[in-house]
Design a protein around this nucleic acid. Structure first.
Lengths: 181, 181
DNA sequence: CAACCAGTATATCGGCCCGATACATCCACG
DNA sequence: CGTGGATGTATCGGGCCGATATACTGGTTG
């Protein structure tokens, strides 16, 4: 997930770790955090895999004290890998965590894949919604007042998300028609 | 988290692993999963710590083929530990994951701690809401249409949750007044 | 009645990610 | 001058997930 996010972000510009994290927070807002404890190891993993390279800034004034900031740049392999991850969008992509991150890079995502992700997510949320409806309609003494409230909140939020997804999908379809004619 | 959940569930009755997971799903519905890959190691950890004990069912008919189901029972230390975890409810408790699990055991939670959790959660969600409001009012070109939509969904859902929490809190206060007079 | 499959049940392993912690620098404010 | 807050890189222990393996039970179907 973070691997995908880093690769996506570095399409915008080369960045160092701290910057990547700030930008990610800006994009994801409430939906995902990603700590430095994950970020730096992942950066090294990507570097080892040749998907990103460390660029030492030539300009000495761009440096920061004696301690060098490590600026990472996407390689051709990195771009390929990002496209590949997008193309392989599947069930895990419909997960809460994953979906938000993918949406943040939608402007860089081919229209057909955008549609696949949106529809996959909708299916996933609809399933969850049905589960919650069933659980709420079943009058079981095994579920107390508080849990029922929790399920009610969950049901409302899945219903809301399905409506939101329907709007996004309709918008995509309108754009598709525009492209076609 | 799972440790807390297991301890809470075993207050109802002794259970084996598979049963614990089913019951947890029933309670948490959409909010949390917990896989067997976490469950069984956690069970062993709790057992090592003396918080639960393995009960071999004496009744042979309750057995299941030649393969024994391991039924776990809460010890006095386990009950203590659960109460202790509740008493220590703090900032991590306001997290998405944690809050849902805690709510599932609210009927077993002292009224003052229930209130602390509800109010802590509300603060947390309000903070997120403010962050999203700020991000949405700032007309930045660094945020594209899709990301803005994501933030809009997030804002709506935090607003909705705050209202939901306010209702729960009001209900708690009403009950409190009832107890007092 | 045998073959098959879905559900019940326990368990391990690799890997992602978080929170805590540590350490160092820069800059604005008092 | 010094102190706190933002910038910046890094490690470590531990929680949790998904994939995978193994095996028994009960019901359906050819």
């Amino acid at each position: 997930m973070l691997e995908f996010a880093i690769l996506g972000l570095l399409h915008e510009a080369p960045m160092h770790g701290y910057e990547l994290r700030k930008r990610l927070h800006e994009l994801l807002g409430a939906f995902r955090a990603f700590s430095y404890g994950t970020l730096y190891p992942t950066l090294r993993k990507l570097q080892r895999g040749g998907l990103i390279v460390e660029e030492v800034p030539e300009d000495d004034s761009a440096r920061w004290g004696r301690r060098a900031r490590k600026v990472y740049k996407l390689t051709a392999e990195g771009k390929e890998r990002f496209a590949e991850l997008l193309a392989n969008a599947g069930p895990q992509t419909w997960d809460d965590d994953s979906f938000g991150v993918h949406l943040a890079f939608f402007s860089r995502t081919p229209a057909e894949i955008r549609m696949r992700i949106l529809e996959g997510r909708r299916r996933r949320v609809e399933e969850r919604r049905e589960g919650l409806r069933t659980s709420l309609s079943a009058t079981s003494e095994r579920i107390d007042r508080y849990t029922r409230e929790l399920h009610r909140l969950g049901l409302e939020s899945t219903e809301r998300e399905v409506r939101w997804l329907n709007e996004l999908i309709a918008h995509e379809q309108a754009e598709q028609r525009e492209r076609d004619q």
